[in-house]
Write a protein that binds this DNA or RNA. Sequence first.
RNA 1: UGGGCCGUCGACUAAUGGUAGGUCAAGUGCCUUUGGAGCACUUUGUCUAGGUUCGAAUCCUAGCGGCCCAGCCA
Length: 574
Amino acid sequence: MNPSTDAEKKPSPEPASAPSNFIRDAMIRDLETKKYGDAVIQTRFPPEPNGYLHIGHAKAICLDFGLADEFGGKTNLRFDDTNPEKEEQEYVDSITKDVRWLGFEWDGLYYASDYFDQLYQWAVKLIQDGKAYVDDLTAEQIRQHRGTLTEPGKDSPYRNRPTEENLDLFERMRKGEFPDGSRVLRAKIDMASPNLNLRDPVMYRILHAEHHRTGNKWCIYPMYDYAHGQSDSIERVTHSMCTLEFEDHRPLYNWFIQQLGIFPSQQFEFDRLSLTYTLLSKRKLLKLVQEKYVNGWDDPRMPTLSGIRRRGYPAEAIRNFCAAIGVSKTSGSLELAMLEHYIREDLNKRAPRVMAVLRPLKIVIDNYPEGQTEEVDAVNNPEDESAGKRKVPFSKVLYIEQDDFREDPPKQYYRLSPGREVRLRYGYFITAKSVVKNDKGEVVEVHCTYDPATRGGNAPDGRKVKSTIHWVSAAHAVDAEVRIYDKLFTKEDPNQLEDGQEFTANLNPNSLEVIAQAKLEPSLANAPVEARYQFERLGYFCVDPDSKPGRPVFNRTVALKDTWAKVEKKSEKK
RNA sequence: UGGGCCGUCGACUAAUGGUAGGUCAAGUGCCUUUGGAGCACUUUGUCUAGGUUCGAAUCCUAGCGGCCCAGCCA
């Protein structure tokens, strides 16, 4: 051995660092120029508690928490609860649970409603400075005065009210002297601005509604634009990430901060996640739940975090996915296949393998001794030796997958068929000899012979067999319900509609198939809820909370890649 | 149509005036007691036209295309 060979060896390459992005670049720059002095990076995740978090929020969460963490910074969880009519404690609870499930822990937990007093005082200051006024116009009149995309707006007749009158009216708004909708507080900016958000935006509206946290203390509530930037500022957020549609709001965000002379948080906008065959609109997801197109927010077909958790998607896989997709200002739509890849990649490493037959076909091994049972060794995870082995019972009568037998096999079909020998995984080689059919002519039973010399799956004479199929011993099988999920929508873009159609027209009628009588190997009898397995040759499955003792319910998380399905599809086309 | 933002393989995303790279998808082969996984290889891209420059995906100009904004929602 020449020692110099080792000396010349290159050091192992740096671990692939996450791809750069424009927000990280801004953080690096701001740190270098000490824009915020010695302060650490401060971010926040600001959900409105008016629905459940979904996979799109996961992208934002990973960004907010991930980027701050990368630079030794901090992240707050802040509920943007400025609209009491839509917000509920149930959503607050689900959101905190989902953020933790995803794997993140916040530094501060806040609510925009924590700042209602401060926000009110700042509004008074803006009135005193002649920067805000009470407007008596109706909502409809305000809309008419706003102008259009191409025409400037008109000043409200109340725009130049004396300061004292504004102060008085605003205080009386707060005290509850006026009915809902009768007046608003507006910022005095520019009714002719080409940016409609600057045409005297509403800061406060009157809403005699009970708030989930402040109860009946307030009957005026700040609008998003008046609350968000200042909330960031109060928390000394340095980098405030949000989605692209808020770009037009940034001048307003900055305007309030400048007028008030408070901590200069800066907003950065990125493209929201969009996935093929899925909808990520809270309004539409709510409709699916309320009108029972799905079975609740955590229906495994839903893109909600609670849905995909129940479906069996691991949090780590979601995080890997979010890291891989990057962040940019380009609006696009990601292929669902990319998400599924990261789910499979994760589960392949961690999920124990197990045998389960979804659509059972009875196999009788004619030359196997009646009443005999033996136990064969099975590997728990070929990707992970430490997962060990288990025993699986084998006997004369077995179930195999209906798909794994063809009386008249097509070309390239390697599985069981009359006269053909295949391997039963970890069991024996068997050869199909004859079939039993029912009245309809369907095969209901296949009689086979086995070769006792092939125990464990190897032939001493070295003969090969083209395929290996999975099986379950009939006498030992556990009955289970298995739920097979498919895409919730039939179109890549569920929003693509014919005239007059609603998005529900694109719902996939076959998104859920319930298999009532699947047969599982006995080791699965007491599998705990949320446990994840690979059913060999089928896919990844996890235990659903609907499971009852002795009758587990499994959800299919994602199917295995299926080369045979591709081959079949191709030959169909020919 | 006023304003804002954005155009890089089929999809997503790097390259920050100096070799257009990665992941997914697709395809081919190897391997295989999962038609799984893995491994190797391959295909496909800078919206267009000008300009600046030794050199442009990157800077400038003009087009073209897409997304967002007229809630007292966020």
